[in-house]
């Protein structure tokens, strides 16, 4: 490992975050506040408690996951796509660093930024609802694992994308629907049985469910399965990264 290089990439990427602070942090926070106003207060006040949890509080883990996933994917995909797009990737490829160093630097920075925003949203949400975290250690574990996994996923998208359109495609067409249908704003027990079965194929369901359990000890699926699914997805992403590394897919002639 070339630690100076990893640190250099990490710092450079974090500098981008702080350079675009308003865009990076303010906009997800603002949109979360809007979700709270609409779903939590306006609509939520007419919805009953779910498994003993007030609806406004119930959606907090879902909202955090929604932002965490989209932020992880977009940070990491943009982070690696941009050097490809403007051509500065030549330096990464000619530097005495391995692909692993590059991945650690970019994914580390993308995940850090996503977790930072997630925590800001968590802090913001305490202004709207009364929140208790039953298992803070597990909450952080889910937070970090999800951020890392989806940053890896974003990194893969960034490598794969040939243009800005493709870069937006997966987050828009895949991530967003999966998150909305993954029980961010409801418990799947509220769905008809057939749709409950369909939901079980949605990987995001396991993330949201596990994460929500760490707050309220209320879950759609058992926390063990949630954790296992996160790890499976992490393993899949690592395999894809390894394959890209072996073949030089879309980065090297």
């Amino acid at each position: 490992m070339n630690w100076y290089a990893i640190a250099a990439i990490y710092k450079f990427e974090m500098a981008r975050t702080f350079r675009t602070l308003a865009q990076s942090v303010a906009s997800p926070v603002l949109s979360t506040i809007l979700y709270f106003v609409v779903f939590g207060s306006a609509i939520g006040s007419r919805i009953d408690d779910i498994e003993g949890v007030q609806y406004g509080a119930f959606i907090v883990p879902g909202l955090i996951m929604l932002t965490l996933l989209t932020q992880s994917v977009s940070n990491a995909s943009f982070g690696i796509y941009f050097p490809k797009f403007i051509g500065t990737i030549y330096e990464l490829l000619s530097a005495p660093i391995s692909f692993i160093d590059i991945v650690v630097g970019f994914v580390g920075a993308a995940a850090t930024k996503a977790v930072m925003i997630a925590l800001i949203i968590l802090a913001t949400s305490t202004f709207f609802v009364d929140l208790q975290i039953a298992h803070p250690v597990w909450m952080f574990a889910f937070l970090f694992l999800t951020a890392i996994t989806f940053s890896l996923f974003g990194f893969i998208i960034g490598i794969w994308a040939k243009n800005f359109e493709q870069l937006q495609l997966i987050p828009l067409l895949v991530i967003t629907p999966l998150v909305f249908l993954g029980g961010s704003f409801y418990s799947i027990s509220m769905l008809p049985p057939a749709w409950q079965t369909v939901s079980l194929f949605n990987p995001v369901l396991y993330l949201v469910s596990g994460f929500r359990w760490s707050f309220f000890e209320v879950a759609d699926v058992s926390v063990g399965i949630s954790l296992a699914m996160v790890c499976v997805f992490l393993a899949l992403c690592l395999t894809a990264i390894w394959w890209i590394f072996k073949t030089g897919y879309r980065i090297k002639n």
Partner: peptide
């Protein structure tokens, strides 16, 4: 200056 510093780091130098 930051772009230049990045290069130094990438090449594993203190």
């Amino acid at each position: 200056i930051n772009t230049t510093k990045l290069s130094r780091g990438l090449f594993g130098m203190k």
